[in-house]
Nucleic acid binder design. Structure first.
Length: 433
DNA sequence: TCTGGGGTCCTAGGACCC
DNA sequence: TCTGGGGTCCTAGGACCC
């Protein structure tokens, strides 16, 4: 890389990633868990989605179904928690607010990761700055983070991953002017590079492209042909040329999904209707929160495809609404109408969901001339009041009756912890004896 | 017995238009 | 016998991410 391109490409990305985030959140409020093996389960207590170092060392892999490792868990007294997204979401917000103080240019990438562009920060030593970030986050939230610093997002990901396997780095790895890049990239398996997943990984390995270094040095034509523009960008990024920008603006979502596996098999259409109503309530809440309306809804339901002895039926159907809306009762009506079209008697359904799409800003509203007799202002007020009450007094304080009261189909959460930070009844209590 | 949920982007191909 | 060509829009599906 010549001096000229270095001037053009002067970005410095820091990827800040919370270590074992969900486990770390639980540990903040339950310090007994420190140094113990801990795992967090996905919704419905299905799979392992977060593991402490100790749990990883015992051979618990990411995404493994819970029932497959129950033996190891019990034998080693691994502590188990159901996902507590209310708690993790709140802790995430605290971490992100602190990170935003370190640079005006930040991308909130996921619940536990953010990219910071440091090019305009007037510090000489980015490594020291990374250590300061790390110290600040830990001191104020109790969450340990790793920091990877590089000239491209893809390289900052690699640096960050490296931190976690090398305790000598003390949580920060800066490869902005790293001399042994070939050696470093040679150690990264190609399928672990950000943007290259399992499918492309297998294809590349069959062509003897085994490491990030091999991929960086592979032919442009080959990569463009087999992987399109995304693959090419990844190659440039590994070469040190930034090709994936910081995404700073929080764009409204283009699709909003709410779906869940059931806690038991459901074959009764009335129960399915309750579930679809509940998911629609959740999805439309999110829709109004980002001040949008949707034009289409998709409803799907599925049987358990792992259970080969069961009759299978998986189907989805999209309909276009007569006008863009976020009015929950109407959308429930349409969604349950679609559900009844899809539903077949005699099948054991395990999961269903609602997807709102074709999303547009809530104003200006494109009114359907045939529906103009509706009082839109009044409907808006009703939804606003509903949302306000539910924000103030807790989710589902007010809800629509079609979602059911007993909800026998609801997901399993046998190991849930308290909502320490968001619910007055679940604050941390300390017994002094 | 028991296998998550919620997103994004890109591409190919069909429909349709002039 | 010979049966355009280019453009746009939409959708479905595949790949990826955490």
């Amino acid at each position: 890389m010549g001096a000229e391109s270095e001037i053009l490409n002067n970005k410095i990305f820091a990827l800040v990633d919370c270590n074992n985030f969900y486990v770390s959140c639980e540990r903040v409020f339950n310090p007994k868990l420190n140094n113990m093996p801990v795992v967090i389960l996905s919704n419905n207590d299905g799979c392992v989605v977060s593991r402490s170092q100790e749990a990883k060392a015992l051979g618990i892999t990411m995404g493994i179904p819970y029932f497959k490792v129950k033996n190891i868990i019990e034998k080693n007294d691994i502590k188990v928690f159901s996902s507590n997204y209310v708690l993790y979401g709140d802790m995430s917000e605290r971490v992100m607010n602190l990170l935003a103080k370190f640079t005006p240019n930040i991308e909130f990438y996921s619940i536990d990761e953010a990219f910071l562009d440091l090019k305009d920060i007037s510090v000489k030593d980015f490594t020291a700055y990374g250590k300061e970030i790390r110290k600040t986050i830990f001191k104020n939230t109790g969450i340990p983070v790793s920091v990877g610093i590089a000239r491209t997002k893809t390289l900052s990901k690699i640096a960050n991953e490296f931190v976690k396997h090398n305790s000598k780095l003390n949580g920060v790895f800066n490869i902005v002017d790293f001399h042994r890049m070939d050696k470093l990239l040679g150690q990264v398996p190609v399928h672990e590079v950000w943007g290259i997943g399992g499918a492309f990984g297998r294809m590349l390995m069959s062509k003897s492209i085994l490491s990030a270094k091999d991929f960086r040095d592979a032919s442009e034509f080959f990569i463009k042909d087999k992987m399109g523009i995304i693959g090419l960008r990844t190659k440039y990024e590994l070469q040190g040329t930034s090709a994936v920008d910081l995404d700073e603006v929080l764009e409204p979502k283009k699709a909003i999904m709410s779906s869940r596996s059931f806690g038991k098999y459901v074959n009764n259409v009335n129960e399915l209707e309750e579930a679809i109503s509940q998911y629609t309530i959740r999805a439309t809440e999110k829709l109004r929160l980002q001040k949008s309306n949707c034009n289409s809804i998709n409803v799907f339901l599925m049987t358990n495809h792992y259970k080969l002895t069961d009759k299978q039926h998986t189907e989805s159907k999209t309909i276009t609404l007569p006008e863009p809306t976020s009015y929950t009762p109407d959308i429930i009506k349409y969604a349950t109408f679609v559900l009844r079209k899809l539903y077949r008697k005699g099948y054991n359904y395990i999961k269903a969901g609602v997807l709102l799409s074709n999303i547009v800003p809530e104003s200006p509203i494109q009114l359907n001339v045939f529906l103009q007799n509706r009082d839109h202002a009044k409907r808006d007020r009703v939804m606003k009041t509903l949302d306000n009450i539910n924000v103030r007094f807790g989710r589902d304080t007010l809800k629509i009756a079609s979602s059911g009261l007993s909800q026998n189909w609801a997901m399993k959460r046998q190991h849930i912890s308290q909502r320490y930070t968001t619910n007055w009844n679940e604050l941390l209590t300390i017994n002094i004896s």
